[in-house]
Design a protein around this nucleic acid. Sequence first.
DNA 1: TATGAATGAGCGTTCATTCAT
DNA 2: CATGAATGAACGCTCATTCAT
Lengths: 208, 208, 208, 208
Amino acid sequence: MPDQTKERIVDAAYRTLVKRGYHETGMKDIAAEAGVAPGLAHYYFETKEDLLVAAIEHGCQPLMRAWEAAGVSLSGPMPEDADPMMFARMGFELAKEELKSYGGLFLLTFDMFGVGLHNPKIASAVRIFIEERRAFVARITQAVIVGMAEPPLASAGAFAAAIWGSLHGIYLQKVMDPEFDAEAAIDALSEMTIAFATRPRRTSGTEG
Amino acid sequence: MPDQTKERIVDAAYRTLVKRGYHETGMKDIAAEAGVAPGLAHYYFETKEDLLVAAIEHGCQPLMRAWEAAGVSLSGPMPEDADPMMFARMGFELAKEELKSYGGLFLLTFDMFGVGLHNPKIASAVRIFIEERRAFVARITQAVIVGMAEPPLASAGAFAAAIWGSLHGIYLQKVMDPEFDAEAAIDALSEMTIAFATRPRRTSGTEG
Amino acid sequence: MPDQTKERIVDAAYRTLVKRGYHETGMKDIAAEAGVAPGLAHYYFETKEDLLVAAIEHGCQPLMRAWEAAGVSLSGPMPEDADPMMFARMGFELAKEELKSYGGLFLLTFDMFGVGLHNPKIASAVRIFIEERRAFVARITQAVIVGMAEPPLASAGAFAAAIWGSLHGIYLQKVMDPEFDAEAAIDALSEMTIAFATRPRRTSGTEG
Amino acid sequence: MPDQTKERIVDAAYRTLVKRGYHETGMKDIAAEAGVAPGLAHYYFETKEDLLVAAIEHGCQPLMRAWEAAGVSLSGPMPEDADPMMFARMGFELAKEELKSYGGLFLLTFDMFGVGLHNPKIASAVRIFIEERRAFVARITQAVIVGMAEPPLASAGAFAAAIWGSLHGIYLQKVMDPEFDAEAAIDALSEMTIAFATRPRRTSGTEG
DNA sequence: TATGAATGAGCGTTCATTCAT
DNA sequence: CATGAATGAACGCTCATTCAT
């Protein structure tokens, strides 16, 4: 029962956070949404920050479950025998799905990016969030590079940063403007990366 | 003299904003930083929002001057006789310079993205900021596409959104983690886009 | 205990209101007078207006208790078998008593009249205050008219408005000038109204 | 020219005062309405109070001119040969006219009554306003009493206070509620006072 | 565990007033 | 005379946090 209460508060915090944003969300609002007294939120979480960090982590769970349901794990290894290009294509498709299903989460994500700029506790949560997802992209990228006829100059990590960045830059545009065609942008990114990954060996000349 | 004061306040606002972030910046802080009485900030700007929008625009000016000094204009047309690929390469180089010289501005930018999520006035300023820069990328992209041997499936606008997004996604990672190697990421993005733009005509087969 | 605190705040608000007037009374003054933190006043009352409306109603209570102790109720019906003229005479006597005992309340009342001119919330409270007391006068007036040998041209409501008005016009003069002889003025009003109510039937001629 | 400027400021103050009320009227508003700089208002009037007192006096002038145009003077003596009852009747008619023509002034008047309760400078202006008009009523009342067949118990001053009070009590009701039928109330007051003034000599019995 | 009364520093904003020009 | 920039104290109100129960 007590743990259920804590869970109720965290969930209420998440919902309030998505609805109103970090700075417009008060402890009283959260407590009201959870149906408990304001003091109780402070019983479980020392500060507002602590509660909101928990709420963010809580909010990420359904998204992570979606990836795992698709057969990939954010933290686990790449399957040895899988076709990395297939993972890449699927990744872009999943990215498009995410935008449709978890719009609220992205709202929260960019809110947290902003808050994290001047708030160490949130910053730490944000860095973990970024690192986790970027590492996942990096694993696919690494596998793709291994199979490339013409190996690239840049490292897998650099490509992963550029691709993760592009996806989130696209999410950002979508979040700031609902009219924005995020799918077309992801398709363009997909077209570009896949063409790059499957380019033929070059017979002569240098890049630079 | 009075205009100098207004300028002093806006500049103080910018510095305070970068140092402490939107929500931790108070009108009194700004006034103190500018060395004026608290009431004076409201004499020149009706609300805190108005002042901070002015501060953001003020902060963007040196960056825009840097682009214009490099021979490109954010809003003007592409020079007719210019080599679009050269502009593209130069753009990526400028992007790397920006990060080194205007770190504070990017801090502020992402702060504003976050604030804009739940603040219409700031959101409007943010959308204009995004649109302006994305349109600039789109003009270069369009010119590049025209010269491609094998035309892409996606539109220039979609590629622009992906590239602008990637750059800002990279900026974001840098801003959240000073250790992050943003130059390598931009180089990877550059390598990928330039390879895509200069790929040979394909003799057969289709993209899926 | 909590209700006692609320009561303490309302009472402090009333005292401060009488002492300093609506516009010179600050929430902090009231809190200080009540011996509580400034925030607590807003815990019980959303706005300053809400608190002050409560304070006015609080201030009216002793006066209403005085009327009920005298055997009359502001809102209840007139006793069937009572002599209306006796009520009228008693009313004027009570009016004189009020001025002596509840000077602070009248100060507050006229302050509220002024505030109500440009403040809808207070205006609404003021209108209810006026209507309640004027209706009471109207009930007595109606009963008196029924017993008049020569019925008047004007309605009971019109007489009630004139009499209520006169009493408050007299209160006003007293409140603006402590030297003013309000008792004499009420006696004059009493003499005039009672003479009018008891005038003999007129044998001929018309009123112009 | 300079005196015209002062006049412009006072007039602007009056208009702003009527429109917005004492406490909602700022020096800046007045200056803007007058089309001058805020500092200039303080050049002519040391404080806001001083200006507003001047504005009130200024606002009373048209009303006083109206009375004088009707052949009566607020401060002068009663014409020797005039019929006092005619003056009384005319006074009530003028009172009804006033309400229609000078609604704004009454708004201001009650605002000032409220302000005067806790503001000595305004209080002094208000007391002069009251005294002037009450004395005028007293002169008529005195003349009427002299002609009464059955002299009243109360003094002319007391009747004047009751009658002046009734008129202003009626104005108050009108000002607080535009639906209120002030004319009917004044007619009732008129009926009552005239009946009292013209009552026949009483053959026996006493007033109690 | 849970309540909700109580705290108090801090917020954005207003505005009568001053004063250099 | 006239301007309007500049002041600074005060305002109503918010809110994370504490604590007696």
